[in-house]
Amino acid sequence: MAKQIEGVYEAILSCAKKEFLEKGYKDASLRVIAQEAGTSTGSIYTRFGDKEGLFEAIVGPAAGQLTEMFLKIQKDFHNLNEDTQRAEMGKYTSEHQIDMLDFIYDHFDEFRLLLDCAEGTRFSAFLDKLVDIEVDYTYKYMEVIGCESVKSGLITEEFIHIVTTAYFNGMFEVVRHRMKKADADKYIRLLNRYHMQGFTTIFNPEQEVPGSTSGF
């Protein structure tokens, strides 16, 4: 096996990140990446297999870690008893959303790639996976508290999916808008309050919403 030159791997990743951010996955050129990194396309294939393998080497760790973090947050909450879930749901959600935001900002370029440059790769479904986890555990929470909205058929899984998709798209707008971290923190806290108020009407459909003219 030929000895790999020290520093080439890192140079390829750095140049590839720049190329993918500028052009997106589909239009990015391995030839340009190789030229900028001072190596050959053959060297890229040797190290990463193919173009998608190179993209995965950049975004895969961040995507995987955030997904695992989110899944653990959900599992830990689901393992709490019913009374604690009822009492702590809003606070728990808010605190851990900030933890996720911190992680996103620690890997900001990787999430820019995942959100806007991943078309043509398996990572184009990154947000969908987070939504699926949230929908699954939202239903579990509703079952724990005996939510009448679900029992009556008023609230369906399709509706929860729509609401959750809207929330996650809103959450990741901080990346798309290149918000400063301090501004993003304020935005996420406000978005979470808005989201939780909306879910209050889902969990308690009999509770009248201030300013509304009609119920469900």
Rank of each mutant, 00 (worst) to 15 (best):
I12F: 01
K75D: 06
V135Y: 08
A62M: 08
V163F: 13
A166I: 13
I188K: 01
S149F: 04
D183H: 05
H107F: 07
Y139R: 14
D183A: 11
Q207K: 15
Q65T: 10
K75V: 15
I98R: 00
I104T: 03
L114P: 03
L101I: 02
I98E: 04
A166P: 02
S14P: 01
F20N: 00
D99L: 15
Y25V: 01
L127M: 15
E56P: 01
R31C: 10
T200S: 12
Q35V: 05
S212G: 15
D50V: 08
E56S: 14
I145D: 02
V174E: 01
L30M: 14
A184F: 01
G24M: 07
S29P: 07
I73P: 00
K75F: 06
G7D: 05
F70M: 07
D106M: 08
F55E: 00
G24V: 10
Y45M: 07
V150A: 03
S152V: 05
L21C: 06
F77T: 07
D99N: 12
L191R: 02
R189F: 07
S94G: 10
F126S: 08
T164F: 06
L21Q: 10
L190W: 06
R178P: 01
Y139W: 12
D106L: 09
K17P: 04
G170K: 00
V163N: 04
N169D: 13
G7T: 14
F172R: 01
D50A: 13
G90T: 11
D99I: 05
I133F: 06
R176C: 03
F123I: 04
M1E: 06
T121A: 15
T67R: 09
E134T: 02
G146Q: 06
Y187K: 09
P210N: 14
D136F: 03
H177A: 12
S14E: 15
M142P: 13
K151E: 06
C117D: 00
T93E: 08
Y137D: 07
S40C: 11
T165C: 04
T46W: 05
I104E: 00
L66N: 04
V32T: 13
Q197M: 14
K18E: 14
H96E: 11
Q35P: 02
S152C: 12
F55C: 01
G211D: 10
S29D: 11
V8S: 01
I188W: 02
D183R: 03
N81A: 04
F20C: 02
